[in-house]
Design a protein around this nucleic acid. Structure first.
Length: 493
RNA sequence: GCCCCCAUCGUCUAGGGGACCAGGACGCGGGCCUUUCAAGCCCAAAACGGGGGUUCGAAUCCCCCUGGGGGCACCA
């Protein structure tokens, strides 16, 4: 089995592409086949020189390594279409010789004029066949003379064409509805219809995954295969991703709207947002594919083992980022500590913290259940690394307490901790609970004051364990500061 | 306008004529646990778009309608 992922380097790499690449990869790895990366850069106008790197970086991040591609070569090199122009030219010559394609000298102006008139009459815009019956000899001569021209496919005017897609019923279209599409542009570069079809054949691709936006031109592609008398691959047209509401194709516009819940549609952004590639793969896989009526967690090995074409869905899927968050939380909780540490580190460093390995190591168990994305570690655990924190003074006042009562409690905590031989958390907790009893406070009242004093946050990792990590002197320092802040407040209660 | 595709809870989905007064998951609501927040556990609400057929029997098959999506470039 040979599959290929064939993106165009025209912009940023989005999650729809990630899913298509994933399915290709899964099939290749499951069957021991080959996964080919091919760059379809036949559009010189939309070409983005940074795009190929982003495609490859994204695939690498996701762990979707390819067996043949522009960077590593392979038996069917080159893998960039711009480097295969000669191949297409020869094939187009062959197609002309076979009577399935013809030169067309119509100017863009004439073409748009024809289109306009057709639209005015409510007809489908279609090439009117002006050059279709030019004598081949004359046309060749004109082309050789340098007259600007394209080459068009000579679509049969009668009959029907049937496309077989693995996910749906046969798609049968009247040939009269298929345009004489341009195969070769006047700049000598082929369009997708020519290049992709040729390469899939030449590279011996057995299964083609592509977006459902190709369904309308699917019959044309079948016709091209027939014209060359080539054997067709298995076709799988994947449905598009929809906006979270299920209305409209997922777009970067949606991602701009915070209400949509769409953090970004770009794969590499997801990495920056603190998502694990394991979760992204799992999430993508399940939009359009399912295994059974209850299994949802599929690490890559399981995906490779269990993926199957017959469980693919043909209906479009709305993306749901809260589900991604859910998956991400699960994978974060299951990641080995060393690995989680390694992945969180860059986010803390990015936030400007100097992170000692040992500190981070002891923090991991305190935060791993509390974060859904890696970047949340910054917010959750920043206080461990800050030299000083700046708690909101009003939050330092305990529940149903006055400022001076709170200050007194804090003072007593200070004394208790100062007297303690170590910050070992079992004994620390014991001491503090005893103190709460002694002060006639609920544990939650005392811990509340302390939490704000030590972490600066009303939501934090477990307090006692956090204090143990922060260390005695720094904890005492922060309590001291809290007492000062409390003493400066009047008892308004 | 023309062509093509799709249709089960808000969302992702299971379902392949009787096993379905439709199952799982996210989210939402409630509860338990609890030093906050999570995590975990438990409970609840929530769907077969409509109409015709076929059949003893339809979420499942067929047709129509509706809705949604995609396409109609010298883009992919």
């Amino acid at each position: 089995m040979r599959v290929r992922f064939a993106p165009s380097p025209t912009g940023r790499f989005h999650i729809g592409g990630a899913r298509t690449a994933l399915y290709n990869y899964l099939l290749a790895r499951q069957t021991g086949g080959s996964f080919v990366l091919r760059i379809e850069d036949t559009d010189q106008k939309r070409y983005d020189p940074t795009a190929q790197d982003e495609i490859m970086d994204s695939l690498r991040w996701l762990g979707l390594d390819w067996d043949e591609g522009p960077d590593i070569g392979g038996p069917f090199a080159p893998y960039k279409q711009s480097e295969r122009l000669l191949i297409y030219h020869n094939l187009i010559e062959e197609l002309i010789d076979r009577g399935s394609a013809y030169y067309c000298f119509c100017s863009p102006e004439r073409l748009s004029q024809v289109r306009n008139e057709q639209q005015k009459q409510n007809l489908s815009p279609r090439y009117d066949g002006y050059c279709r019956s030019l004598s081949l000899q004359d046309a060749r001569a004109r082309a050789k003379d340098g007259e600007s021209h394209v080459v068009r496919f000579k679509t049969p005017k009668e009959g029907k064409t049937t496309g077989i897609d693995l996910l749906r019923d046969p798609i049968i279209v009247d040939n009269i509805n298929i345009d004489d599409y341009i195969l070769l542009k006047s700049d000598g570069i082929p369009v997708y219809h020519m290049a992709a079809i040729s390469d899939d054949h030449l590279m011996e691709i057995t299964h083609v995954f592509r977006g459902s936006e190709w369904l309308p031109t699917f019959p044309l592609h079948v016709l091209i295969y027939e014209a060359f008398e080539w054997e067709q691959p298995q076709w799988i047209h994947l449905s598009v991703f929809l906006n979270p509401t299920g209305k409209g194709k997922l777009s970067k516009r949606t991602a701009m709207d915070p209400k949509s819940g769409v953090k970004s549609v770009y794969t590499l952004d997801l990495k920056e947002l603190g998502y694990l590639h394991e979760a992204v793969n799992n999430w993508c896989a399940l939009m359009g594919w399912s295994y059974d009526d209850h299994t949802e967690i599929f690490p890559m090995e399981d995906l490779i083992e269990k993926f199957s074409l017959d469980k693919l869905s043909s209906s479009p899927a709305a993306v749901n980022f809260s589900k991604l968050d859910h998956f991400n939380g699960i994978y974060i909780r299951e990641l080995p500590s060393q690995e989680l540490k390694r992945r969180i580190l860059p986010f803390l460093q990015e936030a400007g913290y100097r992170v000692e390995d040992e500190t981070l190591e002891s923090i991991i168990p305190l935060i791993r259940e509390r974060i859904h994305t890696l970047d949340e570690a910054v917010e959750m655990a920043g206080f461990f690394f800050q030299e000083t924190i700046h708690p909101d003074p009003s939050l330092l006042i305990g529940k149903d307490m006055t400022a001076s009562q709170s200050a007194f409690a804090a003072q007593r905590v200070y004394e208790v901790i100062e007297a303690l031989p170590s910050m070992e958390c079992d004994s620390l907790e014991n001491e503090l609970r005893n103190l709460a009893d002694e002060l006639n406070l609920k544990a939650s009242q005392l811990f509340g004051i302390l939490r704000i004093a030590v972490t600066g946050q009303s939501v934090s990792p477990p307090l006692i364990e956090s204090m143990e990590v922060i260390g005695k002197s720094k904890v005492l320092e922060r309590i001291q500061e809290a007492i000062a802040l409390l003493s400066a407040q009047s008892d308004t209660k």
